[in-house]
Structure formats: structure tokens, C-alpha cells
Amino acid sequence: MSYDLDQQTQTALFQYLLRLADDRLILGHRLSEWCGHGPILEEDIALSNFALDFIGQAEALLRLAGEVEDKGRSEDDLAYKRDWQDYHCCQLVERPKGDFGFTMARQFFFDAYDFPMWEALTTSSFEPLAAIASKSVKEAKYHLRHSGEWVLRLGDGTKESHDRIQTSVDSLWRYTGELFETDAVHDHLFSQGIAICLSGIEKEWKEIVLPHLTRATLTPPSEEGMVMVSGTRYGAHSEHLGHLLTEMQVLPRAFPDAKW
């Protein structure tokens, strides 16, 4: 399938869809690492369910990216045969899963961005993307409620849980900034009504996150002297991504002719 897009928009949209997809694919991968190892059976099931949602979203986005690119690459080609340099996920999702508090703090930060973002994308002028958004926003709303509840429980639970999740909040904070970074790709798509206003999403993110942390008796770390992570969208990744992809891509790489 090919879409009627001018060259600049086509290139930018392909990039943009990869960003959206890669965040979700990598986060889904991290969540799936909990499967069978959760702290409570119910939570084990819930985390697998999240993983399933994110991988499903990534699949739909990668398929669409392949169609937009129009070079015959399938969602699996894009997931399994792309090198780490060509991935566009943010470092927030690359972080190893850590303890349950770390996973939930990361999830909450991501969900608080994911939900308003999908909500805004439901009105994207690129209809196939708006369609994915309409489906995903329901999942994102549920994710946010769930991770938000855990942030409350852990923050306002025991001394140990409070200290643990506060440490995670502190260490994760510097990875949250790049969720809202814009560049020429984004600006162009925004001007076309395809992408959404990221500074608007950032405002909403803060409106969700800051009061919620307070409710959970947690405090955001001071940003003074903190160097926010930046530039992943252009391929500045952490060491973790390479390991993750090596594992994820092992079979299609080892047996390039095989279909699974």
C-alpha cells in the first residue's frame, strides 16, 4: 500500500512512526521480562497484559511505517532486521527492568506521556495513525490508572517501599525530558496536522505526574545540576539497547531465510 504523501512528509512520517513504535516495542520487551517472575500472580498477569498491548501497538505502527516507507519492509523486517543505530526509542524504555518499583515508576512516567499523546493523536490528519490512536488510547488509559495505583501503594506503603520507589523516581527523572523533545521531523509533521504538540503533552504530563507523586508522598528530584538525557531520537542510545536487540533478533538474524 502506498500513501499520497510528498517526499518530505513521507520521510518524516516514516521516522516518526518508528519513534512511536520503537518506544513501545522496547518497553513491551522489558515488561515481558517479568512474565513468570512477578511479585504477585495477579500482577504477573497484568504486566504480561501490558507487554502484549505495547507489542501489539508496536506491530501496528511498524506495519504502517513499512507501508509509508513503501519499500516492501514488513513489521517483522523493521523489528528484527534493523540495527540499534536505526532504532529511535528513548532511553527511558531501554533501562533494564530493575526491581518492581523501578518498573512501575518507569511505567508511570511513560503512561503519563502515552495517554495524553494517544488522545491527541486520535485527531491526527493522517487517518491510519488516528485509527491506531483510537484503539491505543483505551489501553493507555488503563495502563496509567494501573501504574499510578502502584506508585501510590509503593510510595505510601512501607518505609522500604517508599525509599525504593523514591530512588527509582530520582534515577529515572533525567530520562523523562526527551519524551518531549522536538526536531525538524516533528515540527514538519506538526505543521501538517499529523503529529501533536509535544509541549502541550509535556504540560499535561506535569499535571498528571507532579500532584500524583505528592499524593504518593514522593518528591521529584531537583533538576538543578541534573543533566537531562537527550538525543536518542537521532540514535544516541544506551549500552542496554544493543544487548536487548541481540537477544530479540537472534533467530531472524541467524536464519535469515526462515519464516516463523
Binding site: 495477579e42 504480561s48 497484559n49 528484527y80
Partner: peptide, 26 residues
Amino acid sequence: WLTRAPSLRRKKILLAKIQDEGGHGL
């Protein structure tokens, strides 16, 4: 094999299956 499932479709099927097994346990 979850993190090494060779296609997105297979990964989803496997996740859903293991999740079902957890549900059976419950």
C-alpha cells in the same frame, strides 16, 4: 523464549499463552 520469539505475531501468541497459564493457576 519470550524475549527471543522470532516474529511479533509469535511473541504476542506466546505472551498471551503464558498469561493464560497464569490465569489458570489463579
